[in-house]
């Protein structure tokens, strides 16, 4: 399977070249689950807030997309964004139908960072409560309808 070698390469790259501004690697103890912290810089409704992203990889990565969600626990909350559910699940086409095996973990972080940066008004997606009530543990099991193509 390709996942280990590819993730090793991505990790090495992060360690040598660093991460883009506002994005930090929190932990990558194995090749199954990685955590990143993410901040939105500049003028933004999320100024001063810090979020955490959780990546889960299966054996098929990067042929299949990683399962990505915002961490929701004592320390972190999911950003109040029209594409982010309060349980941390994200509705973004890049994580589903638009996923491409040439995308990387960092590319996903940057895309989500810019998704947050372009947000004008803090609000939850329509039907948040209903979704959260019935949502599967793994967001990849949800068939999202992508609300706009810019994400």
């Amino acid at each position: 399977m390709t996942s280990t070698r590819r993730l090793q390469k991505e990790l090495m790259d992060i360690q040598t070249n660093g991460t883009p501004v506002g994005i930090k690697l929190l932990s990558a103890d194995d090749f199954q689950t990685w955590y990143f912290s993410i901040e939105v810089l500049g003028e933004t409704v999320f100024a001063g807030e810090q979020f955490a992203l959780k990546f889960r990889f299966d054996q098929q990565y990067p042929i299949s997309s990683p399962a990505v969600q915002f961490v929701v626990d004592d320390k972190y909350k999911a950003p109040e964004h029209p594409h982010v559910y309060s349980n941390g699940h994200i509705c973004a086409s890049i994580l589903g139908s638009e996923w491409s095996p040439v995308l990387t973990v960092i590319a996903v972080c940057v895309t989500l960072q810019s998704m947050l940066a372009s947000c004008k008004k803090k609000e939850r997606p329509v039907g948040n409560d209903r979704y959260v009530l019935h949502a599967p543990d793994n967001p990849k099991k949800t068939r999202f309808e992508y609300h706009d193509d810019t994400v």
């Binding site: 390709t2 590819r6 070249n17 042929i63 990387t104 960092i106 940057v110």
Partner: peptide
């Protein structure tokens, strides 16, 4: 950004950008 982490292009050796 993706290209930044892509392997440098060498003439002799090809490194696949998916599996490395």
């Amino acid at each position: 950004l993706m290209e930044r982490i892509s392997p440098p292009i060498e003439d002799a050796k090809f490194v696949c950008p998916i599996c490395f």
